[in-house]
């Protein structure tokens, strides 16, 4: 077989695999379209109407800007800014604290109940407090996201750092690595698989808390604001569209993080498979 033929066969195989996995998506969308047109309910607009509204709302911009309209930029930039900003802060704080707690049984003893209690508080409960403390601005958004997403990072970092193989640590000590070197070259890599699990979980939580903070804090822009705005205008295609955008966003965040995780932890995945 020629090279191109091989490639063709491989592509066909991939396409078939994709078709097997994704065939339900067009089917469900089509059924929904037909049913919605038949029922003509205001509450359940057909997908075509949702897409048209979405396009008008956010994706009518010039191609150079990936079709994003001014409204889309005005909504996405602050929302995603808060999301990533809060997530990054929580990651830094959670990893630093978590590794410190994980490496010290004494420290862990003192703070364990505080962590247990802190993570049991539903984060949205604190939003009214943050509004009073910070007014309804960026700081309130960040505080909500940081408080909400720091726990998975913290708890997983503690776990990862606590159960580093004793032999790894002893090897590092025997060969005279300094404390800082042991932290960077041994403890952090060994804890990385756990830490990454926490980071991924907290990224999806960050999306949720971003929306909650925007909804409860009555933001004046952002994806959450758009939800309230469309609701108040009884713009149901707009609401459905916004929700769909959030779903796509969550899916994209999770899958792009998975790509990064796979690359960073390739040693872990492959070492695990072998034995």
């Amino acid at each position: 077989m020629t090279n191109t033929a091989v490639r063709g066969v491989r592509w066909a195989g991939r396409a078939r695999g994709l078709a097997v996995r994704l065939w339900t998506v067009p089917v469900v969308v089509a059924v929904w379209e037909v049913a919605a047109r038949a029922v003509e309910s205001v509450y359940f607009p057909p997908p075509s109407a949702i897409l048209a509204r979405l396009r008008e709302l956010w994706f009518s911009g010039p191609p150079a800007r990936l079709f994003l309209s001014d409204a889309a930029i005005a909504d996405f930039v602050p929302s995603l800014g808060h999301l990533f900003g809060g997530w990054a802060l929580a990651c830094l704080g959670g990893i630093a604290l978590g590794v410190a707690i994980g490496r010290s049984r004494t420290l862990a003893g003192y703070v364990d109940p505080l962590i247990e209690f802190g993570r049991a508080i539903p984060p949205p409960t604190l939003i009214p407090l943050f509004i009073v403390l910070f007014k309804a601005d960026t700081r309130m958004q960040l505080a909500t996201i940081v408080y909400g997403v720091i726990w998975p990072v913290l708890v997983n970092s503690v776990d990862g750092a606590r159960y580093v193989d004793r032999l790894h640590i002893e090897t590092a000590r025997v060969f005279g690595l300094s404390r800082a070197e042991r932290l960077v070259m041994v403890i952090l890599p060994a804890a990385a698989p756990k830490i990454f699990a926490g980071l991924r979980l907290s990224l999806s939580l960050a999306l949720i808390l971003m929306v909650v903070a925007e909804l409860v804090g009555s933001a004046t822009s952002g994806i959450g604001y758009e939800l309230i705005y469309t609701q108040q205008n009884f713009d149901l295609p707009g609401m459905w569209g916004t929700i769909a955008v959030l779903g796509v966003l969550g899916f994209l965040l999770n899958s792009s993080f998975l790509v990064v995780e796979r690359r960073t932890l390739s040693w872990h995945r492959r070492a695990g498979r072998k034995g």
Binding site: T171, M185, V186, P189
Partner: peptide
């Protein structure tokens, strides 16, 4: 235990 004393990430 070489598998535990070598660092799998290096």
């Amino acid at each position: 235990d070489y598998s535990r004393s070598l660092f799998p990430w290096l």
